[in-house]
Structures are given as structure tokens and as C-alpha cells.
Amino acid sequence: MSTGLLFAALLSAGAADAKDATLRPWPAGQPTPALQLTGLDGQPWDVTSLRGKVVVVNFWASWCGPCVDELPVLKGLAGRDGVAVVGVNYKEPLDTIERFTKDHPLGYPVLRDRTGDAFKRWTPGVMPTTILVDRTGRARWRTVGEIPPDDTKLRAAIDALLAEPQHRTHNQK
């Protein structure tokens, strides 16, 4: 099945099983925003450093129950070849994030969105929000709300992005 047909199948699956996240294409005509934040170690970080991988960008906060509930799904995705997961914490103090990640080891980098500006540019204002970025750095899919443990649509979209030739969308943003 071609990538285009797989995406069409993902979108037209009718009533999604309750176990699947609601996956929507990145808004047409909306460019992929920059994602340049600071890691928990204080070092600058830029999503463009992950070109060549499918990037799962997850906006979360420790006080958000659904964000915490979906952590095992994200940890599982972080272990896949060709996939990078990045957690973007929404406006929490460093000590709060450090305590949380000590109690809940994530296994992927956490970035600090101290002002909430990245959250405003990347999400519709709902937490958690997860965005799939293709290997060329272009946002392609977004799911709003908790990713269920037995979700299949998000994993299928990641598989389809991994199957795309890297040069296909090289000059698109």
C-alpha cells in the first residue's frame, strides 16, 4: 500500500475504535514552527538536530493526568529505530520537572517551554498534544488528548512516515 493510500485509510477509517487516538493532518498551509528550547541541563536544543528521524513532539505538564497516563506509550515509541521522542514541558519550574522525571523516568529528552510560546505555536491549546514530524522536519500529523495504550493509528502513521523516501519532501516546510 502506498504511503498516500495508508494516510487516506487512516483518515477514512470511519468511527475510530475507542482505543485509537484521533489523528488529524497538520493544518494545511500552516508552516512547521521552529522548536528551539532549552533542555533540563540548560543546553539549547533545536528540533532540526533530529532531521532524518521521525520526531514525536509531545506537549505535557506534570499536573495533567492524561499526560502522565500516556507516558508508557511515549516511552515505547522512544525505543523504536528511526524515531525520536521529545517531551515539551509547559511552563513548570525546573525543580518540579526534575522531581517528576526522577519519579517517572521518561527515556527521552525533556525541553522547557517556560513562556508557553511553543505550546501556542504547535498546539490548539489542549494538553496533551502530540505532533508527528517527518524525517525532513515537516509537521505532518497531530493528535490532541491522551494516546491510549493500545492505539494503532499513531503507530501506523509513524510506520508510514518511516517508509517515505527521505528526499520526497526535502524542500517543503
Rank of each mutant, 00 (worst) to 15 (best):
D134E: 03
V55F: 03
D20A: 09
G82W: 01
R140V: 11
R51T: 02
I147K: 07
R114M: 14
E70D: 12
I131V: 11
T101F: 13
L154Y: 06
L111S: 03
V133G: 03
T115S: 08
V85C: 00
I158P: 03
L111T: 15
A84M: 01
L71N: 09
P124A: 08
A21S: 13
G137M: 03
T169R: 04
V86P: 00
P109T: 02
W45V: 07
G76F: 02
T123L: 00
A8M: 15
P149M: 14
K53T: 05
Q172P: 02
D41A: 06
S62D: 14
N58L: 02
V85F: 04
N171G: 15
K19N: 10
R140Q: 15
K91F: 11
M127I: 10
S12E: 13
W26A: 01
V56Q: 06
A18P: 04
S2G: 05
R51S: 06
G65D: 11
G145Y: 01
V86C: 11
R51Y: 15
K102E: 13
T136G: 12
V55N: 11
W122V: 09
R138N: 15
T101N: 06
T143W: 10
E92R: 12
T123R: 01
W26E: 02
P128W: 10
A160R: 14
G87N: 08
P31D: 09
G14C: 07
H104K: 15
V54G: 05
L154F: 09
M127F: 15
L23V: 05
G52D: 04
W60Q: 08
A16T: 11
K173V: 08
A15C: 14
E92N: 04
L74H: 03
K120C: 02
D134I: 11
L23A: 08
K153F: 07
W45H: 04
G39N: 01
E164S: 02
P93V: 13
P165F: 14
V110T: 14
R135E: 07
T115L: 00
P148K: 14
L154W: 00
P44S: 04
G14Q: 05
D159W: 08
L50G: 01
L35T: 14
G65C: 15
G76L: 04
D117R: 15
F119W: 13
T38P: 02
A157D: 00
W122L: 11
R99H: 10
R155E: 10
R155A: 14
E70Q: 15
T3L: 07
Q172R: 12
R24C: 08
G29N: 13
A9H: 02
F119G: 07
G116N: 05
L161H: 05
K75M: 00
A61I: 08
G14L: 05
K153R: 13
V133R: 05
H104L: 07
R24M: 12
L40T: 09
G79N: 08
A28T: 14
L161D: 07
T130L: 08
K102N: 07
A139H: 03
